[in-house]
Amino acid sequence: MGTLSSTAFAQTNVTMYGVIDTAIRYTNNQVTSNGKLGSQTAMTEGAFQGSRVGFKGEEDLGGGTSAVFKLENGFQSNNGAIDQQGQIFGRQAFVGLKDKSWGELDLGRQYGIANDLLSNYDPLGIGNFNENEWASFYYGTRFDNTLKYTKSFGPVTAELQYSVGERAGQTSIGATSGAALSYTQGPLSIGGVYQQSKDANSALLKVAGLGGSYVAGPATLYVQYFNAKRDPGFAKAASNSGGALANTTLLSNAGNTLKRTDSVWTAGILYQATAVTSFILGYMSDSIKNVSSAGDSGRVSTLYAVADYNFSKRTDIYVEIDRTSLSGGEIQDVNGVMPFAGASLGAGSANAASTRNGVGIGLRHKF
Rank of each mutant, 00 (worst) to 15 (best):
M16D: 03
L251V: 04
E159S: 07
L117P: 03
P218H: 11
V319P: 01
K229D: 08
G295Q: 10
A216L: 15
K100A: 10
T302G: 01
S119F: 02
P339R: 03
S354G: 09
D21Y: 00
G46V: 00
A203K: 11
I269Q: 11
Q84K: 03
A350F: 04
R314A: 00
A343Y: 05
L251S: 03
V264S: 04
L61S: 08
D286W: 01
N28D: 15
G38F: 13
N132E: 06
G63K: 13
Y17K: 01
E59Q: 15
S189R: 06
E166H: 11
G108L: 08
S177L: 07
S292H: 10
V334L: 15
K36G: 15
V300A: 15
A237N: 14
G2D: 10
L250H: 07
K100P: 00
L281M: 12
A244M: 14
G127D: 00
S292W: 08
G80P: 02
S177H: 12
D316F: 00
T249V: 05
S327D: 12
V306A: 01
S5A: 14
V193C: 05
A273Q: 12
L107Y: 03
M338E: 15
G112H: 05
F137E: 01
G127K: 01
S77I: 04
M16V: 10
D122M: 05
G169K: 05
T157R: 07
A350G: 13
G298H: 00
M1V: 11
A47K: 00
Y271M: 07
F55K: 02
L221S: 08
V334G: 12
G64K: 04
I288V: 10
T315P: 00
G329H: 04
A23W: 00
T146P: 06
F153A: 06
G336K: 13
N29G: 06
A10E: 13
G362T: 04
G38R: 12
A275K: 10
T220C: 11
T157Q: 10
G336A: 13
T141G: 13
L251N: 01
N130L: 11
L270V: 15
L97N: 06
Q195T: 09
N240A: 10
D231Y: 08
S33N: 12
G346T: 05
I361R: 01
A203R: 09
A81L: 12
D308N: 13
T171G: 14
K36N: 15
N132C: 07
R230N: 15
K36H: 14
G127F: 00
G282M: 04
G233Q: 08
A168Y: 08
S325L: 07
S182A: 05
A93P: 02
A305K: 06
V207M: 11
V223M: 15
L326S: 02
T274M: 05
L210Q: 03
G63A: 14
N201M: 14
A10K: 11
K56N: 15
T355A: 15
N79D: 13
N78K: 06
I82G: 04
V207P: 01
Y283H: 11
N310D: 12
R260S: 10
T157H: 05
E330R: 09
D316C: 00
Y149K: 05
Q195I: 08
L210N: 02
